[in-house]
């Protein structure tokens, strides 16, 4: 029995192709405006006139990378803490889930979660979120996003095993710092990744997220 299932994400190879987003949307039949998994493109750069060739602009301090995130199935999930009905709960294997039958759609979890994971489904009147494709894991398959990634940038596994394999970085910009909710994720940073809280860039694709 797993203790804390978690995602692994390789930011050094993610290219913001959004295959994971579409695969997840397809599997969960989510309507427009609702995506459990989203990809953010983060970076910066500027064009400075060259000192010698004054008519030329030189690209300076350019960097950009991507972060694909769904739900962090946090070790200290604040969404569970604030939920007034007990609908939001954490299982023994670490997956954080919404119990439809108890959820009243107050959206406190959505306000509290620093990762934007719980999202309100207007048609159903309840909160919905990434459930780590618990039903697929149950029958021995990979989650939709992991199986889909053309760059092989995603994995799912036991958090302790992922840490042994890939290290323990669990926060890079533009994700929030890990101290708030202790996200169950392991990240391989991009060569130019910045630690959360020490960012000099901005989200470059805000309308897509």
């Amino acid at each position: 029995m797993a203790k804390q299932l978690a995602f692994y994400f390789d930011a050094s190879t993610c290219i913001d192709c959004k295959t994971c987003q579409i695969a997840c949307k397809d599997k969960n039949n989510n309507p427009l405006g609702l995506n459990y998994r989203r990809v953010v493109n983060y970076g910066a750069g500027s064009w400075i006139p060259d000192a010698v060739h004054k008519e030329l602009f030189i690209p300076t301090n350019f960097f950009a990378y991507n972060v694909s995130s769904a739900c962090m199935h946090c070790e200290e999930p604040i969404c569970v803490e604030v939920c007034p009905t007990g609908a939001m709960h954490k299982r023994d294997d670490g997956i954080v889930l919404v119990d439809d039958s108890k959820c009243v759609g107050c959206r406190l979890c959505q306000q509290a979660c620093p990762y934007g994971a719980p999202q309100y489904n207007e048609a159903k009147g309840v909160m919905t979120k990434c459930d780590l494709c618990a039903d697929l894991l149950e029958i021995g398959q990979e989650t939709a996003c992991v199986a889909s990634c053309p760059q092989r940038a995603l994995e799912v596994g036991e958090l302790a095993d992922l840490r042994k394999k890939y290290g323990s970085i669990n926060a890079i910009e533009p994700l929030p710092k890990a101290i708030y909710t202790k996200p169950s994720i392991v990240i391989t940073p991009h060569p130019r990744s910045q630690y959360s809280g020490k960012g000099t860039g901005k989200i470059l694709n805000p309308m897509e997220v």
Partner: peptide, 8 residues
């Protein structure tokens, strides 16, 4: 592996 377009 397919991409977002094929999967749509």
């Amino acid at each position: 592996r397919a991409c977002a377009k094929g999967r749509s």
